[in-house]
Amino acid sequence: MEDQGNCCLTCCCPCITFGLVAEIVDRGSTSSGASGAMYIVVGILTGWGCQWLYSCFYRTKMRAQYGLQETPYPDCCVTGFCELCAMCQEFRELRNRGFVMDIGWHANMELQGHNGVTVPPVMHADGMTR
């Protein structure tokens, strides 16, 4: 197992991992707390049967932002069949791109010296890394 801490956190409280990923993908326009809370609300309103669709939206958005391929399976299949695994993968992808996941978008931009200006992403030919 590559990242036991992230996997345990995601299994116990997926709303936290979702919120951290969503804040980075939204480029700071929503906080991790607000995104995590929305994940819970969607889950409750759908009887915990369709929150994976909300998660799928962010996976697709992240893939588009970083030019990642949708292989070997479409985003809806990955999140629908193993949403927790998909969230762990997204978390690792962002961390591997240099984001410190627990400090948020704005602090990452300051840390990277971008002052809110993003740079073109590093492209991976083989899709999201494991």
Rank of each mutant, 00 (worst) to 15 (best):
D102S: 12
F91K: 03
T30N: 09
Q4M: 08
L20G: 00
Q89V: 11
M1A: 14
Q89E: 12
G28N: 06
L68T: 01
D126G: 08
S32N: 05
G33Y: 05
I44C: 15
V117Q: 14
G43Q: 09
A37V: 02
R59M: 07
Y73K: 14
R92Y: 07
E93K: 00
C85T: 06
P74R: 14
S35D: 07
I24R: 01
E2V: 11
G43T: 10
Q4H: 06
A107I: 03
G19F: 01
G98C: 05
L20F: 07
G104I: 01
Y39V: 04
M38L: 14
G43D: 08
I24L: 10
L45A: 14
L84T: 04
L84A: 06
V78P: 03
L20P: 01
T10I: 09
G36C: 06
G113V: 07
M87T: 07
A22P: 00
T10Q: 05
Y66A: 04
K61A: 12
C77L: 15
R92M: 08
L9V: 10
S32F: 04
W52R: 00
T129Y: 01
M109D: 04
P121E: 03
F81K: 03
V100C: 13
C77P: 00
L111H: 12
E23C: 05
R59W: 01
G98L: 04
G127A: 11
W48N: 10
V21N: 03
Q4Y: 06
Y73H: 14
L20S: 02
H114K: 12
E93Y: 03
E90S: 10
F81T: 09
C82L: 03
E2W: 07
L20Q: 11
Q51C: 03
N6K: 13
R92I: 06
N108E: 07
R92P: 08
M62A: 05
V41M: 12
L84K: 10
A37I: 01
D102A: 10
V42W: 02
V21G: 01
C11W: 14
T46S: 13
A22C: 07
F57Y: 15
T46E: 02
A107H: 09
G47N: 09
Y66F: 15
P72N: 01
R95D: 05
S29E: 12
C85E: 05
T118E: 13
K61Y: 00
M128I: 13
D126T: 13
C85D: 09
A86W: 00
I24G: 00
E90T: 06
M123D: 08
H124A: 10
Q4S: 09
